[in-house]
Every structure is written in structure tokens, then in C-alpha cells.
Amino acid sequence: VHHSSLTPEQLISCIMHAEPPEIYLMEDLKRPFTEARMMMSLTKLANKELFFMISWAKKIPGFVELSLTYQMHQLESCWLDVLMLGLMWRSIDHPGKLIFSADLKLNREEGNCVKGIVIIFDKLLAATTRFRELNLQREEYVCLKAMILLNSNICSTSPEMAEDLESRGKLQLLLDSVTDALVWAISKQGLSFQLQSARLAHLLMLLSDIRHVSGKGMKHLSDMKNNNIVQVSDLLLEMLTNGS
């Protein structure tokens, strides 16, 4: 079935099935934490998650119909936003904690060992709190994550991409479909029309906060790598270098 003929409910069902599995660091982060150990654990997890993210993107209906150039640009533009939204979703029922994985749960004080990371932890915790206050639903979460992927590079100035009108059109249609799905997910909640609009606005506004934190995160990770505090694995290095 082509994605354009899917109902919002069917589209959400497909996006739900694309969700990555729960991930594990699979090793103990030894205490007391050190800057190098914590950064190594966080980047190791991020690298694992990147493989799952690419697999996830390929399962979003219509994504693989975009040109390879578009697929690469979308992923390199949004990967840290997607990782951060996933982190917020995992942490939503754990006030004050960031659930990086089932076996790596950190509070803000534990971030003190890494120079400059507490301010990022605080922003992540604040956005997570906002999602908790809004009682973010799983269907809304998966739509928001797909929207990050599809919207991440919509204002690209790359001539190569501007000329690829076919992919550009497909991308816009896909984004419209996921937006419809999000509107549908909100409409199921029995809210007044006015409250539905307000909820949609509140959820979408949080995406700009996530964009802001991911920019800080990219800068922080680049600095850590450039100062040789952490070694970054191949895929993560490629995404960091090309995405920033």
C-alpha cells in the first residue's frame, strides 16, 4: 500500500512498527564517574542508536522513495534531535532523571563530571518536564519524531537538492501526511477544538527547543572530540562532521 493512500491511523500504525527496540549500553559505567568514561559511554550509546535510527528512517512510509541525497541530508540534519526526543520519551516517567538506556540512568548532578554538559542536561530535563506536563501520548511522540526527520532540512539552500524537485515535492507531501496523523492523534483525546489547536501548537513549539539543545549538544561533542577527551566511532564521527 502506498503511503499516500494510508489513513492517519494506518500511517501511525506503520510509524509505531518502525520504532527501534530498547537499547542497552551492556557495560557498567564505573563510579566515580570521570569525564572520559561518561563521554565514552554516551557516545557509544549514540553510535548504537544511530544504526537503529537509520533502520527506523527506512521504515517510515515514503522515506526510501526520496533520492539518496535527500535521505542522507535529512538524517545528517536531524540525528541528534531524534536521539534527544527519544531520550525525553524514555525519561518522561522519571522526574529528574535522564534515561539514556535501560542500564544508563543519570541525574543532573552526575553530569557535573563532564565540563559543559550540565547545562545541556538541564535543558533536556526541562523539555522532558514540559512533555510530562502535556501528558505526551505515544502516538503523538512517534509523529513528532517522524516530523523532525522530515522537517529537518526543508529550508536547505543546497543547489543539488533545490533542483531535485521530485524529492522536494515528495518530502512535503510526506510531512503533510504525518502532520495530519498528529492532528488525528490529538483529535482522539476528546478535547475542544480550541484546546486541540493549543495542544498542537505546544507540541510543535517544543521541537524548536529540541533543535536548540541539539545544536548545543553538537558543539559540545565536537569540542570534546577536538580536545581528545573522547574518541568518536566512525558513523558518529561522520554524522557529527557532516551534520554540523
Binding site: K48, F51, F52, I54, S55, K58, V64, L68, T69, Q71, M72, L75, E76, E160, D234, L235, E238, M239, T241, N242
Partner: peptide, 24 residues
């Protein structure tokens, strides 16, 4: 070509029909 060169791993993972997770 330069884009593909810059994105060697991502390009391979997207192009390959095998799941990226299995290729990891």
C-alpha cells in the same frame, strides 16, 4: 561523488537492503 565520499557509512547503510543494524 563528493557527497557520497563524505557520507561513506551513511550512504552504504541507506543503499544496502540489509538492515543497518545487521550491518553494524
Amino acid at each position: 561523488t563528493s557527497l557520497k565520499e563524505k557520507h561513506k557509512i551513511l550512504h552504504r547503510l541507506l543503499q544496502n537492503s540489509t538492515s543497518p543494524v545487521d550491518l553494524a
